[in-house]
Design a protein around this nucleic acid. Structure first.
Lengths: 228, 228
DNA sequence: CTTATGCTTCGATTAAGGTCGAACCATGAA
DNA sequence: TTCATGGTTCGACCTTAATCGAAGCATAAG
């Protein structure tokens, strides 16, 4: 009578209102802290912590620690697919994406974060590299694939030289405004440096804003398409 | 906090073990009576009746009365799609049933997913149709090309008749074992039905396994080559 | 009619788990 | 160091709902 995987356990995880609210909020793709998710779900932090550890044990979330904050995001896009399907069943349609109002447009768009690119374009860079299979996220590490190495070499970035340095080549970094991953590590720094060399972008010295030229932005979008 | 459709309620419906068992059995596409589903789920008929009315209220089932029997089947292939997705999550999260019996191998090879072909051969069918240009995936829809329509017509499948029905002709369904797309929708059902008519394959009545004959498999592989 | 079968409803029991207060642990700041 | 903050663990309370016995309907057969 029982064939295949046990869907009851996973479905029961999603089936609790508080947990479902958390998952729905995380559909935005952002990573949120325990406190924020507690607020969204309308429960106390203790309760939220319990829920989140259960969701995590069920493989639905991906946790990341940064300082004394703990960020949670959906484990994979497959999770998002299933959630979307459930929404479809629940109401047929009408899923609304919430968007935070842009405060400082330029800072949100592109800025420097420890010498690598952050903000909207930073996450686009990261997502595009992931989507094209140039980066692969394993259990703990972010790895540059062979295809990715060739891709980077085409940009005239000395990958082997970077590999010789003791600093990690690829690292994920979570930034404040987007709450999503972008590429840090020596490769992240090399990317930004290369963008400056190519005159695609330059940094504003007074602020952390990175200004892309018209043609630079075009080239960037061509090389790192959003749905890549 | 109540934004969008309530996925908690629908997920909670699937989240009960007894109900999940019933839904899993119904993935075969067959319509079953209350008694049969009670048997499958391992509960009494009263309990099953209660569960089934809840699933029905949730829009997951389609009931049909025939004499003093009441038959239930899945409400739509969208329900099956979500269930398959949940199976994928469950299989990936380590909640997979450890005992990898011979039945699991057969299930992975070829099985029924709401009356269409799933498993290894299901994805082969899909990939081959895509590779030969018979199917095209647009932004939202999966479309049968003119060449594809001719190809299907050669198989003595009445495409125009299927098009007249309100059910979608082509649809993607994500496979839990393969984690890839296979063909659902009325065309997917028509394919499997045709395979049975041609005596290429037959369904195991107790499980969701689809058994291909030697010559049937050969013909299948000739018509839908892996690299096609 | 009577009888049998398939299913539903009602009610009581019982097990599961969501919830929060309080205490505890870990990290960062002063 | 001390203090503040974000998160976890523990324990007790309490709501929810799964379960089945028993009775009630409905349909079909004799």
């Amino acid at each position: 009578m029982k064939e295949g995987p046990d869907i009851a356990q996973i479905a029961a995880l999603i089936g609790d209102p508080a947990r479902a609210n958390m998952l729905t909020v995380l559909m935005s793709g952002k990573a949120l802290t325990v406190s924020e998710l507690a607020e969204e779900a309308g429960v106390t932090i203790q309760t939220a912590s319990s829920h989140l550890s259960k969701l995590n044990d069920g493989g639905l979330l991906r946790p990341r620690k940064q300082g004394r904050h703990k960020y949670f995001s959906l484990a994979s896009d497959q999770v998002a697919y299933v959630l979307e399907g459930l929404m479809g069943l629940a109401a047929g349609s009408g899923h609304l994406r919430k968007r935070t109002g842009p405060k400082d447009v330029e800072l949100r768009q592109a800025r420097v974060c420890y010498n690598h690119l952050a903000g909207d374009m930073g996450t686009q860079l990261f997502d595009s590299l992931m989507g094209q299979g140039h980066l692969v996220l394993t259990k703990e590490d972010l790895i540059l694939t062979d295809r990715g190495a060739a891709f980077v070499a085409d940009l005239a970035i000395d990958v082997d030289g970077l590999r010789k340095a003791r600093a990690p080549l690829c690292r994920e970094c979570l930034d404040w405004s987007e709450r999503r991953s972008h590429l840090a590590g020596s490769l992240g720094r090399a990317f930004l440096s290369r963008f400056e060399d190519l005159l695609w972008a330059k940094r504003d010295q007074k602020t952390r804003v990175v200004i892309f030229s018209r043609s630079g932005a075009d080239a960037f979008n061509r090389l790192f398409p959003v749905n890549g």
